[in-house]
């Protein structure tokens, strides 16, 4: 069972993704910002994939990505960035390599297909 970490300051979106992916056989944990995500990751709870909103309080998805890519233990964890803002996709590349970009609002099926594709590419 693949493990996902969902970082989004919107509780509705976090819970929605958690519910949806759990229904599809994934194990999904949620955190409200990048700082909490990083704390969890650095405690050794490394998931198979991280979904992170770009705009979050304290630490956004871009900064989270940068911190992960700078950490040898987390460097290989695939990241899917989500954003409700325009024109962030290219500038997010400056933070590091991410595996997929999801523009809000997105379909859950579209998100599921993206996660499946990214995880398949990893293995």
């Amino acid at each position: 069972m693949a493990r996902l970490l969902i970082a989004d300051d919107s509780a509705a979106i976090s819970q929605l993704l958690q519910r949806y992916f759990t229904r599809h056989g994934y194990e999904a944990a949620t955190v409200p910002d990048g700082e909490a995500a990083l704390a969890l990751l650095r405690r050794g709870e490394v998931p198979d994939l991280v979904m992170a909103d770009v705009t979050m309080p304290r630490l956004g998805g871009g900064e989270l990505l940068r911190a992960m890519r700078a950490d040898s233990r987390l460097r290989g964890v695939p990241v899917v960035l989500m954003s409700g803002a325009d024109l962030q996709e290219e500038s997010a590349r400056a933070y590091g390599d991410y595996q997929a970009w999801m523009q809000k609002p997105f379909d859950l099926q579209q998100m599921l297909a993206t996660v499946q594709r990214v995880l398949a590419a990893r293995t």
Binding site: S10, A12, I13, L16, A85, D86, L87, K104, D107
Partner: peptide
């Protein structure tokens, strides 16, 4: 306008997803 669009997309994402579920 960009900020507003960003603020509107979060609840839209949630709403769309809830209905999909």
């Amino acid at each position: 306008l960009g900020v507003l669009a960003h603020e509107l997309r979060n609840p839209l994402t949630g709403l769309s997803g809830m209905l999909e579920l």
